[in-house]
Nucleic acid binder design. Structure first.
Lengths: 130, 130
DNA sequence: CGTCATTGTACAGTGTACATGTACAGAGGA
DNA sequence: TCCTCTGTACATGTACACTGTACAATGACG
């Protein structure tokens, strides 16, 4: 499992770890029963302190993706996706999507390319199990 | 011009302001020649300190969207969109899009709905001037 | 059954960045 | 000329990310 972390990014490292792992979890590249590396090991790989990794694991445990035990480390568990209030989630999603698109558009990324990426993301969503 | 700011959001207020205004700028709802409200006024509207708004204006000026003068306030200027390195921008965009999608998916937002929003965003991009 | 290595946890310390408070500087109108 | 409205500069408070270090629990192995 090779994650990539950007120490210069404004988004905190522990949240980068959470985001990366959440992608793997949602896309079923990490499945119930799988175990994550010990915090000290992953921390060494990423070049950060192990408490930073531990914080990330705890966050994912709060989201019910992981179970953490003292000696056995972090284990992926079965998780039934919650039913979030649709309207609010939808509005937030639209807004953040708009922000993201505006940002890359401002950077000069061509609208057609952006549209293509959006369609691709949507397409790859069809085959996914939620 | 009515922006909405969430004081409880983890993303800093000044960047929320920047993101909101950038959407308006990219979508040509703010055009060259338009003037933004004075920092103290917008700050009052949003319930934050005027230095926070000033920081946002300065950020957008750094991005070449605005020109700021002492007495005349912030004015939208004509801006030719830069040519950013495509590969890097594309990779970053894909990644952040994945993160965003995974997050709402984890919250229980149905994949079909997500796909629909993505297609909508792409569609609304066709009519936009870059 | 005892010992020990391996795991995550707890908590204090430090740096940095966001938001504010306050004083200042410049520019335009009365 | 003066005054008020504008953005700027910088010091301060505070929250949080990351680290350092000590601790606790648990499983393996003799």
């Amino acid at each position: 499992m090779t994650l990539r972390i950007d120490l210069n990014s404004p988004t905190p490292v522990y949240r980068q770890i959470v985001d990366s792992l959440r992608i793997l979890l949602v896309n079923a590249e990490l499945n119930p029963g799988d175990t994550l590396p010990p915090v000290r090991r992953l921390a060494l790989d990423l070049g950060v302190h192990f408490n930073t990794v531990a914080e990330a694991y705890r966050t994912l445990a709060d989201e019910a993706w992981l179970e953490i035990a003292k000696r056995s480390g972090a284990t992926v568990i079965a998780r039934k996706t919650p039913r979030a209030p649709v309207a609010e989630t939808s509005a937030t999603f639209q807004r953040r999507l708009q922000e993201l698109v505006a940002e890359v558009q401002a950077r000069g990324f061509a609208p057609e390319r952006i549209a293509r990426e959006l369609h691709l993301a949507a397409a790859s969503l069809k085959g996914a199990k939620s």
